[in-house]
Design a protein around this nucleic acid. Structure first.
Lengths: 252, 252
DNA sequence: TCAACAAATATTACATACACTTTTGCCGCT
DNA sequence: AGCGGCAAAAGTGTATGTAATATTTGTTGA
């Protein structure tokens, strides 16, 4: 068992969050888990992690406990923490859950109304998307840009829902390893255009204060992303003949 | 500031979970938070807790971390953990979120089907409820019994959904302080009867493999519980003229 | 060759000491 | 009195040692 793989990716950098090594360590471990550099099911060794990250075991333990709370790790008494397994089923289900939750968020936003700032941000996002899609085809980097635009739209609407529990749950859905949106870039222009149209309609429903229509549209919107993902994953697993359980990270 | 209140409720008992003080401490603190014996917004002092519970700070910190992960506590660097505030709005929203999530769970259960054991459990729950409701009025303790019946129904359907993330999120919704179902017992016979009828219909939809109907029925079902809660809370806050922010625990 | 058991090793659980940050409260000043 | 600043106190963050538990390794006997 040469299990020194993976954990070498983690580097003893000071980390971004000053004044709290536990949080910094937490970010680094989460990053390593999300981008797949530590394999699912793998046991995370405290002392090795602390050596690798050049801190003591205490902040490492704190980080592991917090990440278990986020649902990224499993904990078993006297056996420590392991990277949680996310079979393909669970990943697809996570989209379904997210669709439902973001639907509620859209409904809340439509009920509660948007602040001027939020309106401005969303309208900027919609305009930027329109301009990006005008050309009819994508150039290099365009998908990365659209991902940002897409994130602004969803984040702002979620903020307008004004509910912390909802925000945290949706965040958890986003933090599913492998399926994490940043790993998915291989979408076609037509798909993106249709989703951007969805954004327009959702925003109209929110502005028109039509909560249930907003919810329904948002649900359908996220569900369609799920459908694209499934299509992408099945095609990919047909191409390279690895196992279909979505073990490895997707191509960036 | 006489802030030694509340924490005196916690006792240095060995705790139920053997072999792991952190988990035992976690259970005790959660209990204290859920039943309202430590007030919302209050700061949880590590050293005092460790003295009260007769353990060192290490398992206390672990427990606090985990509870923060459950969403019951807030954490701020260098300032420790505080009991999270749940304004009435957030409590009501939590029911809305739960309605959406349990709806998805019912859909999944209808798609995936129930095991023979699960069918048996649910049918037992339905039968027990029928018998309890036959008399037309409640006696002392009947509501407690029905709470158990109700719990069996929902738990079993959730298990049949076969999705861990969903189960954890719904569990979080259940663990909202004050609103925690065990604190709510003041429901009328007619309400319970109607909800039990809901259970029958939901089960029929699940057995008939009608996922979307099951989802819709479950959503409506949980939403109606929310409505009852709102009615109950507003009436209560009209009676005793304390603040309407639902600060104290509800009468058992 | 394999199973069962025991010693050795590895790893986590807990306690505690020290470092650093925040809060408290006192004091002198205006 | 009210305010600013400094020092003491309290509290959290981190490191590390020890105890308890799990895992591996090695040995023995069938």
């Amino acid at each position: 068992m040469t299990d020194q793989t993976g954990q070498a990716i983690l580097e003893p950098t000071g980390g971004s969050r000053a004044g709290n090594r536990a949080l910094s360590v937490m970010d680094q471990i989460r990053e390593a888990v999300l981008n797949g550099s530590v394999a699912a099911g793998k046991r995370l060794n405290e002392v090795r992690l602390s050596r690798t990250l050049a801190v003591s075991r205490t902040p490492v333990r704190a980080a592991l406990q917090a990440l278990a709370g986020e649902g990224l790790l499993d904990y078993a008494p006297n056996r420590g923490f392991t990277v949680r397994e996310f079979p393909l089923d669970a990943i697809v289900d996570a989209y379904e859950i997210r669709a439902s939750l973001e639907g509620v968020a859209a409904r809340f936003a439509a009920e509660r109304g948007l602040s001027p700032d939020e309106k401005a941000t969303i309208e900027r996002s919609l305009g930027a998307g329109d301009r990006l899609l005008e050309r009819g085809s994508f150039e290099a980097g365009d998908l990365t840009i659209y991902r940002e635009i897409n994130g602004d739209f969803h984040d702002t609407l979620l903020a307008a829902a004004r509910n912390r529990m909802l925000a945290e749950m949706i965040r958890i859905c986003h933090h599913v390893p492998v399926s994490s949106s940043r790993n998915i870039v291989a979408f076609e222009h037509r798909d993106v255009r249709r989703r951007h149209d969805d954004h327009h309609r959702i925003y109209e429903a929110v502005i028109a204060r039509e909560p249930w229509r907003a919810e329904m549209l948002m649900r359908e919107h996220v569900s369609s992303v799920k459908a694209s993902l499934v299509k992408f994953l099945t095609e990919r697993s047909r191409d390279n003949e690895t196992d279909a359980a979505a073990a490895g990270p997707l191509p960036g």
